[in-house]
Design a protein around this nucleic acid. Structure first.
Length: 611
DNA sequence: GAGTTTGAAACT
DNA sequence: CAGTTTCAAACTC
């Protein structure tokens, strides 16, 4: 516990917290000499997503506990690997203890992509050699603050050009203290800054800059002068678009930004010189008198294009041009409202959904709808089984006469008895989530009743029904007509051994057909919606827009869809009370109310159009 | 490579 | 939480 001379680096006013740090610090200040070719480190913190997506891997991930987690990790690292020029990841992750140079712990980013080499210097770009760990150049922070990229990235400095570095094994106590202090200030300090970044997609498309809309900076940037088109901007550096989290000014880093497009245009994407030139031009234009400055429209556009599933290609109206369209869209998508205002603080005016990619079908399918779909399919299956069995029984009875009929009858009784005694067990076995309170549905299933319950179900159908039952149970959807439960019961008592294969086949056929129909309808609806969205973007006919505002579809189309859907599923098989209502939300059975569900704003503030 | 600019982090 | 300071990377020359 000797004091390191590192303390001398700190101004008196800030030394306080750091005194404690240095108290335990080992003395050895190690002006580290870069041995390797100056390899660049990737953007600090920005890549933590690779360690587990949600960032559970960074030192900050586990928050207060994370500090504790780091310690054994560090030890394990020390045990596993002598300090070499390699950098080590200190994150508590499977990968963390692996001695590695950076590239090996990073996602396979494209070497040429900005994402792959954030904070690279120009020289690195020139040599084109895939990045190694970048060395920091910290002078005053001892590499124990987030200023230090190494520290922020959760790695030891190794081969850096820093002065008085304490971010190394020798100074682990100090480092640990620093980590704790950092976490105390901000429990998320070591968490990934970029959230929800599907690496695959990013890797595939980042060059054209139309991908990372799926990711966004957790905190957002606060750029003022760079237009978010320089690497000063963390979003830009991470090759993602600015989001509603950002509080930047004069942002040009949004989808559809011409300035941004210029940066990623064609083969120039890899040309940093060009890129920076374009950025400079863009910034100049933005800050200068070009009229770009303080364009509040910019940010709003981000979400629009995202929502409509279009990328840059969709005609983006610059600035004032897009205002009208924005207003229209804003009616449909409150979160995308284009309320004029300063770019700063735009996050408040722009909805949180701006950068959340949503499939066109996302609005069509609700979780509840899926449940209903499953329910209906189950019902169809049961109905089919019942019909088949009835037919079979009828023929058998005709052929075999009274005696066999009696036998069948006694069998039925046995089955019934079994049901009385063992059904609940079976039901529990099958529907493991079984809520006791829900089991009453067995006998009360008036629609298909005991007949259905005695019919065989195919294995696939049974699985489906069990899942369905599980889902419905877990969703706490109490339904007296919970046929899933019912069918689970029956499934365990397949009465006839071999002849059931045909029934299974028939059931599956029917179920699959119905499911196919549903999917087809869904596809139709999705296409319909796509057309609507496209037409809206183009400022299409106001009637359609009006309809969409409420429902996402025109009422006429809705009716048509419902009519057709009704034909797709045999109503007779459906217990009307609940299942039809629910199912109608997606694919089937029209009740008189074509819009059975109340539209509700989703998490992003969108109003989800319901079918 | 020195100096400047920039924005995040740290601090008040 | 806003304003200021510190810091180091990015950038310019």
């Amino acid at each position: 516990m000797e004091n390191s001379e590192g303390g001398d680096f700190f101004p008196p006013n800030k030394a306080q917290s750091e005194v404690a740090v240095s108290a335990d610090a080992a003395t050895t200040v190690q002006p580290q000499v870069a041995v390797d070719i100056p390899a660049k480190k990737l953007a600090r913190q920005l890549d933590f997503t690779v360690f587990g997506g949600s960032g559970g891997q960074s030192p900050g991930t586990a928050m207060p506990e994370q500090t504790k987690q780091i310690q054994p990790l560090v030890k394990s690292i020390q045990l596993q690997r002598p300090q070499t020029q390699q950098h080590m990841v200190l994150m508590p992750t499977k990968q963390t203890a692996v001695p590695t140079t950076h590239p090996s712990i990073r996602p396979p980013l494209k070497p040429d992509s900005p994402r792959a080499r954030p904070r690279q210097s120009a020289s690195e770009v020139k040599d084109g050699t895939p990045k190694k760990q970048k060395q920091c150049n910290c002078k005053h922070s001892r590499c124990l603050k987030l200023y230090c990229e190494c520290f922020a990235s959760g790695i030891y400095c190794d081969g850096c050009n820093c002065n008085n570095c304490h971010n190394n094994v020798e100074n682990e106590p100090a480092r640990r203290e620093a980590v704790e202090a950092t976490l105390e200030r901000n429990p998320h300090a070591f968490r990934p800054k970029i959230a929800s970044s599907p690496h695959g997609a990013r890797d595939n498309k980042e060059e054209i800059g139309d991908v990372l809309v799926l990711a966004k900076h957790n905190k957002g940037c606060h750029c003022k002068k760079s237009g978010c088109l320089k690497k000063y901007c963390e979003c830009f550096q991470a090759n993602i678009l600015c989001s509603e989290n950002c509080k930047c000014m004069d942002c040009k880093n949004f989808e559809g930004s011409e300035e941004r497009q210029a940066l990623f245009h064609g083969d120039h994407a890899n040309n940093m010189a060009y890129l920076q030139q374009a950025a400079n031009a863009a910034i100049t234009g933005a800050i200068g008198s070009s009229g770009y400055g303080l364009s509040p429209v910019n940010k709003k556009r981000k979400g629009q294009e995202l929502f409509f599933g279009s990328s840059v290609k969709e005609p983006v109206h610059r600035h004032g041009q897009s205002q009208q369209g924005n207003h229209i869209k804003a009616s449909v998508l409150p979160s995308l409202s284009s309320v004029p205002g300063p770019c700063v603080g735009n996050a408040a005016t722009v909805g949180p959904s701006k950068f959340t990619y949503r499939s066109l079908l996302a609005d069509l399918i609700q979780p509840q709808d899926l449940k209903e779909l499953c329910s209906v399919l189950v019902l169809h299956s049961g109905e089919a089984a019942k019909m088949l069995a009835d037919e079979k029984d009828a023929s058998i009875k005709q052929a075999e006469g009274q005696r066999e009929a009696s036998l069948a009858s006694s069998t039925q009784e046995r089955v019934q008895n079994q049901k009385d005694s063992g059904t609940e067990k079976d039901m529990l076995d099958c529907c493991s989530s079984g809520d006791q309170g829900e089991k009453i549905s067995v006998e009360e299933s008036s629609l298909d009743g005991a007949d259905v319950s005695k019919r065989p179900m195919s294995p696939g159908t049974l699985a489906l029904m069990c899942d369905e039952s599980h889902t419905m149970f877990s969703a706490a959807v109490a339904s007296p007509n919970d046929l899933a439960t019912l069918n689970c019961n029956t499934s365990s008592q397949l009465p006839h051994g071999q002849g059931m294969t045909e029934t299974y086949a028939e059931q599956e056929r029917i179920v699959l057909m119905k499911f196919r129909d549903c999917l087809n309808r869904l596809v139709d609806l999705g296409q319909l919606k796509e057309r609507k969205c496209s037409s809206m973007i183009r400022g299409a006919d106001p009637v359609d827009q009006k309809d969409m505002i409420g429902n996402g579809f025109t009422t006429t189309e809705m009716r048509n869809q419902h009519d057709s859907l009704n034909n797709g599923v045999a109503k007779s098989a459906l217990p009307q009370p609940r299942t039809t209502q629910l199912f109608s939300a997606v694919v089937t059975t029209a009740n008189n109310n074509p819009f059975p569900k109340v539209h509700r704003p989703d998490e992003n503030g969108d109003v989800k159009p319901k079918i």
